[in-house]
Design a protein around this nucleic acid. Structure first.
Lengths: 345, 345
DNA sequence: CTGAAAGCGCTTACAG
DNA sequence: CTGAAAGCGCTTACAG
């Protein structure tokens, strides 16, 4: 039960090796300054360090220099969602994998909810500065706090595309535009012309991107976008000539659920009566639904890699390479087929 | 794109308020030393801090004092297991919940595997000292590294009972002895006398505790312990008069799997032909199996609480209260019934 | 009541 | 080639 002073410091090594503390620092940090030094001195220091079981104090290192090989992860909501199936988890797996591979520790910052939420988040966000840099993840961007971090040159990376703050935020997102367009092109390839897109009434980048992809692919076609705001009437749509439905996919799966309910209610089968594609993966085990898979794990990994490159200044905060969109994996599924020639039910 | 120097320091506040930097420190830290000070001065400092958007630098705080309100979590394997159903996850949920509730950030330390694993772990374990204290979780205890931490008075708590190092390690575990005994008592209550215990050939505390509970409950009965080392012959056991089987449950579920396979092969039904209880929860959705649930989430929460009490010195490292065993929740299930009166198949 | 000083354990110019 | 000094942003005795 001695005190914390039990940990050997550089000064102890210096005494042991008969050199100055500064020399110890130079030797132990690999002599990056390329100071010329007698090999014997170097060895003596190394030996003393080994003998005393020296481990650098990460706190002091961080204060004196500017690296401590710690990466922050700030999440705005609980980091470990209770709902394990949450889309969140694979990202964490990727983040941790890559952080470990690059020799970085991870600091989890949790913005606590409650009454003083705003203040609290601001303080917590500022605290991220203990780390060399920080990953952020969440639907909204607290402009002021993040802007402050950006202004001060603190390395940060958002997970998910972030056009906010004049596109000054580095990010690693998924290329929803292209993935969505490809799904819709598949429908067109099957002969569909009148395609309806069902989206949720939210304007997060991931939503608008999907819609853009849909619009790109259907340019010139009678395809229309329907914003969910209640029930949907598939029969009416079919009477209008709609032969395929494309639904947005989000955390809540509201749009997807609405469609499957309507299909069931109308006793409709895909792709016999209607072709169906989802812009993402549906909840549960519905693996037969055509769509695409978001590379969440890879997003986590790449976000870490990008953050480290920002930290080492290998990449500038403003570099185009600091805005990454990863491709999504198409999922063929079985809910898309040729246009049904029969008349609507 | 300014430098990090953009963050205001206490010195900046001091200049703004026309006081010394030390006075700023006193005011901002709530004047715990109860230094007498003009209220107007205090307010002036607070106002200046507010105006400049001051946030204390946690690194400097930690170096100068000894608290930074960060808790470490060291895991020896990947912190986010890819197998989501892993028993690991609920503990993390509990840890994060309670850490957030107590206003503590979390630092994840991951011992990387690989060739230099031992050295690496040792260095990583030492790095935990950036935090005010650290939670540890894993099947083995690296004696030397943990002993060193303990010697230096660094607050740490293991998740899971830890008799190693002469019981010097504070922990929060589950009371497997009592939970196991209760399960077995249930069997005895149903009239079973000749009960067989199937355990895996591993001597972790969680294994030996379960066996102890079994032995306690079956004292004086012909109950015997069988160490798994290949296939098992249920028919032979039944001919010996065994009417109930109790299996250990671990990460791997080896024992449980062996029994269910044997049951299936022998076309046996529980509890008709044999009563079955598992000392924990079986893998998958087998909710009908009698056993008990380990309070993992609560273990996570309590471990955090204990660690904080250690950090604040409210509790000493050697205090008996720093060795906690949480009760497990019994699961009734349907695989235990009265002794089968018919003859063995 | 408030300021000046020392120190936490490092890194990084700068002298010799 | 190596040492002495300053400084990172705080806290904590200690003087006035």
């Amino acid at each position: 039960m001695t005190t914390r002073r039990a940990m050997p410091r550089q000064a102890d090594i210096a005494r042991e090796a008969g050199v100055s503390q500064a020399t110890v620092s130079v030797v132990l940090s690999g002599n990056r300054a390329r100071v010329r030094m007698a090999e014997t001195t170097r060895l003596r220091v190394l030996e003393a360090a080994e003998k005393l079981g020296y481990v650098p104090d990460p706190v002091a290192t961080r204060l004196a220099s500017s690296r401590n090989h710690m990466l922050g992860l700030y999440t705005f909501k609980t980091t470990f969602p209770t709902d394990v199936a949450d889309s969140y988890y694979p990202i964490l797996v990727g983040v941790e994998e890559e952080a470990a591979a690059l020799g970085q520790d991870l600091i989890l910052f949790t913005g606590r909810g409650g009454a003083d939420r705003r203040d609290h988040d601001a303080a917590a966000i500022r605290r991220t500065r203990v780390a060399d840099g920080c990953l952020f993840f969440g639907r909204h961007v607290p402009d002021e706090a993040i802007g402050g971090l950006l202004d001060s040159g603190f390395p940060l990376v958002y997970i998910g595309r972030r056009p906010e703050l004049d596109n000054r935020i580095p990010f690693v997102g998924a290329d929803y535009v292209r993935a969505s367009a490809k799904v819709v092109e598949q429908l067109i390839h099957h002969g569909h012309r009148n395609i309806r897109y069902l989206r949720e009434p939210d304007d997060a980048p991931s939503s608008t991107d999907r819609e853009r992809g849909f619009r790109q692919a259907t340019a010139g076609l009678p395809a229309t976008v329907h914003r969910l705001d209640g029930g949907i009437d598939l029969d009416a749509w079919r009477k209008e000539g709609v032969t395929a439905v494309v639904v947005e996919e989000t955390d809540t799966s509201t749009a997807y659920t609405a469609v499957t309910n309507a299909l069931e209610a109308g006793n409709l089968t895909c792709p016999r009566d209607l072709s169906l594609a989802v812009l993402g993966r549906p909840p549960g085990q519905a693996e037969h639904v055509t769509g695409f898979a978001v590379p969440r794990r890879e997003m986590g990994r790449q976000a870490v890699r990008l953050l480290v490159r920002l930290i080492t200044r290998e990449l500038g905060q403003d570099s185009p390479a600091a805005r990454q969109l990863l491709p999504c994996e198409p999922v063929a599924g079985t809910t898309v087929g040729p246009v049904n020639q029969g008349s609507p039910a």
